[in-house]
Design a protein around this nucleic acid. Structure first.
Lengths: 198, 198
DNA sequence: GCCGTTCTGGCGCGCGTGTTCTAAAATTTT
DNA sequence: AAAATTTTAGAACACGCGCGCCAGAACGGC
């Protein structure tokens, strides 16, 4: 057909993702984005549509690259270890997060979702996806005896999701490892049938 | 002296608080604020300083009116009941929150704190205050036998704080009572020594 | 080699923002 | 009553925003 793009769409989309992740939607201007992505405004609009559409694509890319990938990777582990590793990785990420960007899913849940139905849907779906992963782990753990079965699995899954989100919020102002690990160790110990840390 | 104010400062500060609470800092314009508060921009600047200063005053007012008041009120209850009631009230607030404003402390933690040291300090202090309240309840409950003592109190306090923050995030996109109560019931049941709901 | 299409660069529009200024109105003190 | 001081009202300023427009450059199909 005609003249091809001079940039790699995935590469620049990841740059945009990092901008939105670190600064949020409103605080990131289209001029900022274009400069950081190494393209001009017109190219940006040609390739990704308007600012909101670019954010959506960056957000979906983030979810695929972090949440979906992590769940797929941990799903193969024994259930109790999968949950333990999930929280360990999140804590590691949070402690190493010098820019204090936090979790883009949580950020979107608070900045965009309240007034944008499409993002509300996206965020809700992703949270349900994480909750379902926890539930599968808990059900399997209750079967193999590694997780206490004094409470129903779907209740405990909601609890784990809450603790996860809470840790992500906590990390924005108190990113000390002891704080985040305190919360994670607490719930994991209570979940453990053996009453010893996972 | 001279001409007195035509408006009550506390009243209009509460109006500003509700604006910031519902729409966040960036999404609320000074013109919006002035109109909703029933005063002009000049009066606003005279009485409260610039926009950021007004937000700070509204935020402090929020903390005093919600967090501090709740803790003082519940501190008199038996420890296990105090924790149970705390979560019940938060869930009630979240379910009734038709505007989806969430918790202003969490909102500030994500919107302002990451790049504003003063708000980071304010938010961190308040979270430590809530954590300390939980710790006092848990220590008392472990003494009177109503709360399991298999884990140290300060770890469980961090866990409760995380669940609280997580519920506040969850409620922004999934404000169904069953979801929020699932998380709360889960952690409270695990905390209970008797293995029955609080 | 040329045409049609697409991408590139940059300017500019219209608007909304936080903030400030000026002048008039109102109230206490002298 | 007059002076002094503070609050009002509203216009105005400078700036940054998302977005669109337009000329030219670069490429594929004939």
């Amino acid at each position: 057909m005609a003249r091809p793009r001079e940039f790699d769409e995935t590469t620049v989309l990841e740059v945009a993702m990092n901008c939105f992740w670190a600064q949020g939607f409103e605080q990131t201007s289209v001029r900022d984005l274009a400069e950081r992505m190494g393209i001009t405004g017109a190219s940006l609009y040609n390739a990704f549509g308007d600012k909101r559409s670019l954010y959506r694509q960056a957000f979906v890319h983030y979810l695929a690259q972090t949440v979906r990938d992590r769940v797929a990777r941990l799903e193969k582990l024994p259930p109790a270890l999968a949950i333990r590793t999930f929280f360990d990785e999140i804590i590691e990420r949070s402690v190493d997060d010098e820019q204090r960007r936090g979790c883009m899913l949580v950020n979107a849940a608070l900045e965009l979702a309240p007034y944008d139905p499409e993002f509300q849907q996206l965020v809700a779906e992703e949270m349900i996806f994480i909750e379902a992963f926890f539930r599968r782990c808990i059900e399997a753990g209750q079967k193999d005896g590694s997780i206490a079965d004094t409470r129903p699995a779907d209740e405990l899954a909601k609890l784990l999701l809450s603790v996860l989100l809470g840790i992500r919020v906590l990390a924005r102002t108190r990113p000390q490892r002891e704080v985040l690990e305190g919360a994670a160790n607490g719930v994991l110990a209570l979940l453990s049938k053996a009453r010893t840390p996972f």
